[in-house]
Design a protein around this nucleic acid. Structure first.
Lengths: 173, 173
DNA sequence: ACAAAGTGTCCAATTTTTTGACATTAGGAG
DNA sequence: CTCCTAATGTCAAAAAATTGGACACTTTGT
């Protein structure tokens, strides 16, 4: 199966060119942006399968604050589109913050082409293979029961279903 | 509301003592292990609300391999119990690997007591407040529809429900 | 030892899901 | 362009799941 379009955002055009060269053979199209403002517009128009997002925009400020903001914006509108974070600094704090905000992966510059390619592919493959609804449901039910330490009444209440329904879902599993 | 028991694993007893001092006032009990082998046994016996896991066991080997192994083991049996990773090295690779394997957070030694405390509390609060089943369902349905770029037939198939049911769930939302 | 909370099980009423069908509307291939 | 396939929107009846209430019993905590 073929891979679709990638959206890459970085304020350094050399990086964007390098990404195009590195990824051009594997993906249908590499759409690039040198500033993040149009990300959501593009994503509303084009079918984007994965996003590569640089974390440091405001020159000289390397907190990644802008990057996190845009990551959140992307995830809010397209929760199933994987976002791979790209940074110049191996900042653990930022990596953790990024992943906790829904990023699929985190890569530092300069990157290894094969590694980046593999990570993007993995993220897309994962986003494509969604679990059936019944599985997601069974999983969440189990978590609720665990969280209530086996108290089924509380678990049912937490899940917003009747106690009998919870019994059903437990058996069905 | 009060917080329950914490399980902390580290092969350095000084670290375990420091954790007890740091966390003792906030949590009911700080159970400590100097080697990971008994983690699952303990967790089957005691009600553990969060785990603090050191990532470097085999002396001299700092790949975090063992840590990831135990993280996976914990998550497999207790997917809803948050695991906070603790390491001596600010290793981005390891942090990313840990979070992708379900860790709730990642902290480097030496840690800031207030920060660690806050991160544990946050992780527990999050694990306690499970979304109602209907919300999880609606969320997953939306992801499937996105993933199929609006093709409802394929989305329904992917979710393992009939097309009409998908229509229902879309309206209900 | 008592009261409150939780369990397992049952029932009838209601709601949801399924299955199958049908006419209509895109989209792609020749 | 035209045909063919896939997808849509909608309907109806059968099957299945959910609900709310009830009951006797057990567990839990004070």
């Amino acid at each position: 199966m073929k891979y679709g379009n990638i959206l890459a955002i970085d304020d350094n055009n050399a990086i964007l060119t390098a990404l195009k060269l590195c990824l051009g053979d594997t993906f249908q199209d590499i759409i690039t942006l040198s500033q993040p403002d149009d990300i959501l517009t593009i994503m509303a128009q084009e079918e984007i399968e994965a996003v590569i997002l640089d974390m440091n925009f405001s020159l000289g400020i390397n907190t990644g604050h802008d990057g996190i903001f845009w990551l959140q914006a992307i995830k809010k509108h397209h929760p199933n589109v994987p976002v791979i974070l790209l940074t110049a600094y191996a900042d653990v704090q930022l990596a953790v913050k990024g992943l906790k905000n829904g990023a699929a992966d985190f890569v530092t510059k300069p990157w290894d082409n094969d590694e980046l390619l593999r990570k993007i592919k993995d993220a897309i493959d994962k986003s494509r293979s969604l679990a059936p609804l019944s599985e997601v449901e069974a999983d969440h039910v189990q978590r609720a029961i665990d969280s209530c330490h086996g108290n089924l009444s509380k678990a049912a209440d937490m899940l917003g279903v009747s106690r009998q329904t919870l019994y059903n879902k437990m058996k069905t599993k």
